[in-house]
Design a protein around this nucleic acid. Structure first.
Lengths: 213, 213
DNA sequence: GCGATTCGTAAAGATTCTGTTGCGATACGC
DNA sequence: GCGTATCGCAACAGAATCTTTACGAATCGC
């Protein structure tokens, strides 16, 4: 029924019945949005959220009969963007889908980013600076990815912290100081370039071209 | 109660009671997320969504006692990103807030302003005068941004002070004197132009084209 | 003209932020 | 089970910014 309604709105829809098929279709097809049930044979919806989040940043909409608080919180914190309790109105669901897709064009895809001296590949979790491969830990990588996607702009402490460490850590700028330091050290290499500028009281700015140190 | 819960999570919260105050606080303060009731005296939540969408792309979360399908659809299509029906669980609301803020860095929206000799870019926190980049501290930048957005108009002391230092500092014109002086010094460069004019007993006027000194 | 208020400028003091280091806890692979 | 890599967290010196004060010059009302 859901499928029919979505198709009627001229969305291109694929339905799957088990997690394995989901993974396969997901990788082959690169959807713009995922709607999943919390109860799936073999893998919970929460695990699905996490699995998708590792690969892509598309909106995830979770459906469930369960209306319990902690279930919702868990799913949302695992990366879901919305949680709709059954039974739900089709019109509402379509409106929510529209709302999430409205944001879609603003989202940078998960393809590799090349800016300035940098090549950042989210899929491979690899980074190269001026041709030289650099090994980054997951948190360092998240940080750099965010910078690469917003090259030239100042990212505030709060934005960086919420994106990498979660909203509850938004008041801990110590983390940032430490990881910015590590990133600078790893990125610098031989060239005496300064890739990450400090904007005191505000945040940091990433210059992929580098600035004379 | 909502305010207390959000503050407890160390969010910086402002509560308003009517649409006019909402607009004022919104413009002065530039929040990262808005939570609004659908029922407000004087302006419907739907209108609020539209009004905010015209200016910014931050997430809007609508609360309401109304659980009717067409109400939800209307709000979501008007620009709301989420619709939560009362009574709701605080934990769920907090989780939804986290989910929306997680997306925040992808929406660094404000576009640069170009007027006269000036290029002011809020996203990059950068300023250039006649092509020459100028470094400004945060307070200086806020001040210049306000001027750039109101080029040619006289901004009163009170307006400037409340915008940059907050309402409680509206009676401290010393701040202004000091910072206007610093701005003039930094902006002037070689060209002997006067960009900020004093309007005695009233305030200051910004002329992006510059006037002969 | 004269007093009162405001304005411009400089500098010192206080405050907050930043970069760095180090250590223990935890998770992971072998 | 063990070693390694990563993360969270605290402490510190140093830097950048903000606040406050002071004083001469300019402006206004009378």
């Amino acid at each position: 029924m859901l499928r029919a309604s979505l198709s009627a709105q001229r969305y291109d829809v694929r339905t799957v019945n088990d997690p394995e098929e989901a993974v396969r279709v997901f990788e082959d097809w690169n959807p713009d949005l995922v709607i999943t049930d919390l109860m799936m044979p073999g893998m919970s919806g929460v695990e699905i959220c996490r699995a998708i989040r590792r690969q892509a940043s598309i909106p995830i909409l979770v459906l469930s009969v369960r209306d319990q608080e902690h279930t919702k919180v868990e799913a949302l914190d695992a990366g879901a963007d919305d949680y709709v309790t059954k039974p739900f109105s089709i019109q509402e669901l379509l409106a929510r889908v529209r709302a999430h897709l409205r944001r879609a064009p603003e989202r940078v895809g998960d393809s590799a980013i090349q800016v300035g001296d940098f090549l950042v590949d989210p899929a491979a979790h690899s980074v190269a600076v001026a041709g030289r491969p650099v090994h980054l830990t997951p948190k360092e990588f998240d940080l750099l990815l965010l910078f690469a996607r917003n090259a030239g702009k100042v990212l505030t402490h709060r934005v960086l912290l919420t994106a990498v460490w979660g909203a509850q850590s938004a008041q801990q700028p110590e983390y940032l100081r430490v990881f910015i330091g590590q990133l600078r050290k790893k990125l610098q290499g031989d060239a005496h370039k300064e890739y990450i500028q400090t904007e005191p009281w505000v945040g940091y700015r990433f210059l992929p071209e580098g600035a004379a140190a």
